[in-house]
Structure formats: structure tokens, C-alpha cells
């Protein structure tokens, strides 16, 4: 049986792991390669590296870090941040990334999704969507959640699926950094209306929140950062708890 995935996210700036509260006020939480190895050993199913400074600073690749991570760890990982071309993706995959995640560049150039899927296959193309609930409508935002677009979350999600995305990483800006739980209603709607895996992101504060994201939110995977980085939740304990609740996990 396919299991639900637990994914620590390592936000990277200047080669170090950081996690912002609502994407500002950054705190340093360690060396990414070392953290990656610890997470792989502790039962994480997958890792995501997001260069959160990349879009603003136009930093191109994390190729060097990717190579170091690939050398050390034996679980899959996704890399995102500043990826805007077929060449960018080619370099990251060649260096050992399993998947790439694109965000702003997909909004600016939706055909990029088609080109990437055609060249590398849908299975390695994750489209990350940051959205904020404004006056009852989920609006897609760019540049780490700072710039609103005119896109509706659900319409955009369906379009990226049609264009060949292999999965969607949905971050609720309303929930991110709050530790009050994931945006389960929006997650469930995404998961029901689309036929590709949905990764829940933003709002994890305790173990029950993960449980809710899988049951109420129907998510295929759940991503979190600070609760793992600051050891508020141990992945082993979390997986035991999920299994006790009847949710299939790899232990």
C-alpha cells in the first residue's frame, strides 16, 4: 500500500537552513547536508530544499549543494528556488536531485511546465503554489508570498496538472508559521478535484495537525520545517502516532 509521506523542508539561504515565520524574520537552523542525513536516518520519507532567496536574488542553482546531498543521503529529494529553464532543471537532475519544484517561473511562463514534463517526465516536476485566502477566495501569490497574482488557486492547480505537473506543493500563506494546523479545507478540495499527489505545507504545530492533513485534508504528503528543525516533533514519534490512527506510513 502506498504510504503517506512526511517531508521535512529545508529552506536554504546562502547555503544554510533557515525558516521564516510567515516568510520573514529568518532564523538559522543548521547545515543542510548534515540535517539531510539526520532526517534520512530518522525516517523522513523525502526532503525538500527550497532556496527561498532565489526568486528575489535571481540565484540560479543549488547544484553544488545538490551534489553533496546526493552523495550522502539515500532517500529522494526535491530542489526548488529560482528554477526558470530546462537547463536549470537539467543541471539539478544531473547532480542528483530526484525532482524539482517550480513556482514563480511557472506563473510567468506556464509553458515551462509543458517543456519540463516533455523533456524529463511529469514525475520529476513539482509545481509549488503559495496562496492566501482573501475575501473568501484563494489567491496565488509569488516571491515567497509577497506578490499577489490574479490567479485562483484551484484554477491554477488544474492548469498545472493539465500542463504536466507530477505533483503540487500547496502552501497556505494564512497558515504558514502559525503552528495552528494545515489549510485542510483547501487541501481536500485540491486532492479531490485533481488526480496528482498533493503535498500539504504551512501550519504544522503538533502531531494531530499531520493527522488532520491526511484525513480531513486528504493530502498525500505533509511538509514542515521548524517543528522538525527545532525538534518539537520527532519524525519517529509522529509516524508511530499516525500508524496508531490508522494512517499508512513507512516505519
Amino acid at each position: 500500500m502506498l504510504t503517506k509521506r512526511i517531508i521535512p523542508c529545508l529552506d536554504i539561504k546562502n547555503g544554510r537552513t533557515v525558516k521564516g515565520i510567515n516568510f520573514v524574520d529568518l532564523r538559522d537552523a543548521g547545515d543542510p547536508v548534515e540535517l539531510a542525513a539526520i532526517y534520512a536516518a530518522s525516517g523522513a520519507d523525502e526532503l525538500v530544499f527550497l532556496d527561498i532567496s532565489a526568486t528575489e536574488e535571481r540565484r540560479k542553482t543549488l547544484a553544488n549543494l545538490v551534489l553533496k546531498v546526493a552523495e550522502k543521503i539515500n532517500i529522494p529529494f526535491t530542489v526548488g528556488g529560482g528554477i526558470s529553464s530546462v537547463e536549470d532543471v537539467d543541471i539539478l537532475l544531473q547532480n542528483g536531485a530526484d525532482k524539482v519544484s517550480i513556482n514563480s517561473s511557472a506563473v510567468k511562463d506556464p509553458d515551462l511546465i509543458n517543456r519540463l514534463a516533455a523533456k524529463f517526465g511529469s514525475q520529476c516536476i513539482t509545481v509549488a503554489i503559495d496562496a492566501k485566502l482573501i475575501d473568501g477566495e484563494w489567491i496565488v501569490h509569488l516571491v515567497g508570498g509577497k506578490v499577489p497574482t490574479e490567479l485562483n488557486l484551484f484554477e491554477w492547480a488544474k492548469e498545472v496538472e493539465k500542463r504536466g505537473a507530477g505533483e503540487i506543493l500547496f502552501t497556505s500563506m494564512n497558515n504558514d508559521g502559525t503552528k495552528n494546523g494545515f489549510a485542510n479545507e483547501a487541501l481536500a478540495k485540491l486532492s479531490t478535484e485533481l488526480n496528482i499527489p498533493i503535498i500539504a505545507s504551512g501550519g504544522a504545530g503538533n502531531m494531530q495537525h499531520f493527522c488532520d492533513a491526511f484525513i480531513e485534508g486528504k493530502a498525500d504528503a505533509a511538509l514542515a520545517a521548524s517543528v522538525f528543525h527545532f525538534k518539537e516533533i520527532e519524525i519517529k514519534d509522529l509516524k508511530e502516532e499516525l500508524r496508531n490512527k490508522g494512517i499508512p506510513v513507512r516505519i
Partner: peptide
Amino acid sequence: NNSVKVPQIGWNQ
């Protein structure tokens, strides 16, 4: 077929 999410991504037995 579309009775499952495609692609299958993750850990299976």
C-alpha cells in the same frame, strides 16, 4: 488508470 493518483509517488511495499 484514473482510479488512483498518477503518478504514483512515494513509498510502497
